[in-house]
Nucleic acid binder design. Structure first.
Length: 692
DNA sequence: TTACCTCGAGCTCA
DNA sequence: CTCGAGGTAA
């Protein structure tokens, strides 16, 4: 083959674009040698020369630039903002196992569901500790990259992801389907992380806390050039599209196919047999954890036979053919320096342990909630105690246990205060109740602050610029006692507050003015009635379509609303019975005052989309049963409790019961939650999940 | 719950 | 330059 130089001499004059294509092919080849095979054929200097030649050529002949050119990795202009995009196939999460028994139980369920007594082959992989991504290749070219988001919609980070070296902008070969969606993880290797922090330290800048957060931050840079400089890595671990191809019959084979297309795939993936094979793999991985070049937080096991995936199904948000076996959460000892009592919106008193800050799982932990007083009593945590702390479910700090032998002499048991720390009103704990409550109601400044925060929050009246610190000042200076007072203050009043100038004050008043025009559901939600969240507020609004009618409703009438049980009905009735609440509502609606208003809701469709259809729900669903039932009822469907031949659909959640078997026996259509969501979307707007 | 990024705007000092 | 608010991710 000709050397690049000879090539250049021959082709440049005749066809610059052909030379550009040749250079791209060469660069892609050397990228693969370097990043994937770790076996470069040419020096970095030679590689750079190829890249510079391509850059020069493209600069001279811009018509030759293609989107998959390696020159397009960097240099893209900063974005103005991230946009969201919808995943064609939802990005699921995985069920977790934390013990050998839970893993064996998973295997047992798999075998039971597949109706086969043989051991199944699992694909075993490390669970990389990064940021989940979905890449989309169309006709072999990378066109889209998105974060997981809520699983259905994520952020478009294409420009950032294009800068990841070693990630092909064009798939190798030509045997790919027209559309390939690759699921995988972006991360920073330990080495890159250390190098970045060393550089930051040398410049006297702030260091990153851990590789995962550093990777997440790098992906969320508006300027892709910064992302490029961070040195991210990507590893694929699955496909987001279903393709009927021989290599797709086995998960491990599809990983090999990804590698053949030039994609880096999760290392150490291999086949293991049955639960015993999974456990052996897990132990071997755990032993090598510290020696790996990147952080992992467990192992993932997937049934390798993809034909079995369809039979096992995907229920709720996680597939039934895979499980993540997490490594035990790191436990760190620290000292309880204080125990504070926080007052929530409903007056609930929550004890919070203030800890001597310690690093747990890559972050500094200084607080741990004890949830309620009963929990505090059970754990018998006292000030001065040494406790073991971990981050449960990877997120929320939790006091696992205390070390009795390290308790200092004279450490006194924490007692539930008689009086609210914020307002001094009596604290009551009903016998047998777990939660203690401040009786101060909305006279309690802490409850007032929480109520105002809730009122201004995104799904309530969405008042931008009214944050925690501002609410603190407003309540502490007694400028605002209830939400209606917010609307009575002037720009000058707000401008007089700390860190508020004329500009901020004007913006806030404008945001308040915008919030006056709202919806009934948002208004009901904003009131902060106990037990009434976004979905229930929506159900109440849809049922009465008028605030006066709702305020006059009796408990039995309230019970008629789908999704409303005795607890909610009592709370709603009790709320509207309070003269104070009625006064605030009147103030909020007063045309001469706050003047909150909303359009009269549309009457429901004459013929609801799911009229005559009968549904049965089973298993653990992502929302309370009653909420999902309400959505179905709002569209005219019937929801019953037992599966019969008359049932049209069974909606199966996590760990469905005997109804699932019966539905299959009767040939009733079984829907996953995702399928139900699609059906509801198609069936139109009966009762959307959000009050909007 | 913590970490990180982005934006707007106030604060501080030249 | 620094802070508060708002968003996202695990």
């Amino acid at each position: 083959m000709d050397t690049p130089h000879d090539d250049l001499a021959i082709t440049q004059l005749s066809d610059p674009c052909a030379r550009a294509a040749e250079l791209r092919r060469l660069i892609a080849h050397h990228d693969l040698r370097y990043h994937q095979l770790d076996d470069p054929e040419i020096s970095d200097a030679e590689y750079d020369r190829l890249l510079r030649e391509l850059q020069a050529l493209e600069a001279a002949y811009p018509a030759c630039i293609t989107p998959d050119s390696p020159t397009q990795r960097v240099g893209a202009a900063p974005l103005v903002a991230f946009t969201t995009m919808t995943h064609r196939m939802p990005m699921l999460s995985l069920a977790n196992a934390f013990s050998d028994d839970e893993l064996r139980e998973f295997d047992r369920r798999v075998r039971a569901a597949l109706g086969d007594d043989t051991e199944w082959i699992y694909a075993a992989e490390p669970k990389l500790d990064g940021l989940a991504l979905s890449l989309r290749y169309e006709h072999g070219v990378l066109v889209e990259a998105a974060t997981r988001g809520d699983g259905h919609r994520g952020e478009d980070v294409t420009a950032q992801v294009r800068t990841i070296r070693g990630l092909p902008l064009r798939l190798r070969g030509d045997d790919w389907p027209p559309v390939v969606e690759v699921r995988g993880e972006v991360l920073l290797s330990r080495a890159r992380f250390a190098a970045l922090n060393a550089a930051a330290r040398a410049r006297g800048e702030k260091e990153f806390a851990n590789p995962r957060n550093a990777a997440a931050g790098s992906v969320r840079q508006l300027d892709p050039r910064i992302t490029a400089a961070r040195g991210l890595s990507f590893f694929g671990h699955g496909l987001g599209t279903v393709t009927d191809a021989p290599w797709n019959a086995s998960h491990l084979a599809s990983l090999r196919q990804l590698a053949a297309w030039g994609l880096p795939v999760v290392p150490e993936a291999r086949a293991v047999l049955g639960a015993a094979g999974c456990l052996a793999y897990y132990r071997a991985l755990l032993a090598r954890r510290a020696a790996l070049p990147y952080e992992i937080d467990g192992a993932v096991f997937k049934i390798d036979d993809r034909a079995a995936w369809a039979r096992l199904g995907t229920l709720s948000r996680a597939p039934h053919w895979a499980i993540a076996f997490k490594f035990p959460a790191e436990e760190v000892l620290t000292v309880v320096e204080a125990i504070d009592f926080q007052v929530g919106r409903t007056g609930a008193i929550t004890p919070v342990a203030r800890l001597r800050p310690v690093r747990v799982g890559g972050v500094n932990v200084a607080n741990a909630t004890l949830h309620n007083f009963a929990e505090l009593e059970r754990k018998d945590v006292r000030v001065g105690d040494t406790v073991a702390v971990r981050r449960a479910g990877d997120v929320i700090p939790e006091i696992v246990r205390r070390l009795p032998e390290r308790r200092p002499d004279g450490a006194a048991a924490v007692v539930l205060p008689d009086h609210c720390p914020a307002c001094g009103a009596a604290i009551a704990r009903a016998p047998g109740e777990v939660v203690a409550r401040c009786s101060g109601g909305l006279y309690c400044p802490a409850q007032r602050k929480e109520a105002l925060k809730h009122f201004a929050s995104r799904h309530a009246l969405d008042i931008r610029g009214l944050g925690e610190r501002l609410i603190e000042q407003l309540v502490d200076r007694d400028l605002v006692r209830d939400p209606a007072d917010l609307y009575a203050l002037t720009v000058a009043d707000y401008a007089a507050l700390e860190r508020m100038g004329a500009r901020s004050a004007a913006n806030l008043v404008a945001a308040l003015a915008r919030s006056r025009s709202t919806t009934l559901a948002r208004f009901i939600y904003a009131l902060g009635i106990r037990e009434v969240g976004a979905a229930t507020a929506q159900a109440l609004a849809a049922h009465w379509r008028d605030l006066e009618a709702l305020m006059a409703a009796s408990v039995p009438e309230l019970l008629a609303v789908p999704g409303v049980g005795p607890t909610v009905a009592e709370q709603v009735r009790g709320f509207f019975d309070q003269p104070h609440n009625r006064e605030v509502i009147a103030k909020l609606r007063d045309p001469a005052g706050a003047h909150l208003h909303w359009p009269a809701p549309e009457p429901p469709d004459a013929a609801p989309a799911l009229a005559g259809k009968t549904f049965v729900l089973t298993g653990t669903l992502s929302a309370p049963r009653a909420t999902i039932a309400a959505r179905l009822l709002a569209r005219g469907a019937k929801v019953t409790s037992a599966v019969s031949a008359q049932t049209d659909y069974l909606v199966a959640g996590e760990r469905p019961g005997s109804k699932y078997e019966r539905a299959r026996a009767l040939g009733v259509t079984v829907l996953s939650e995702d399928e139900l969501a699609t059906l509801l979307e198609v069936a139109g707007d009966g009762a959307p999940a959000r009050p909007d």
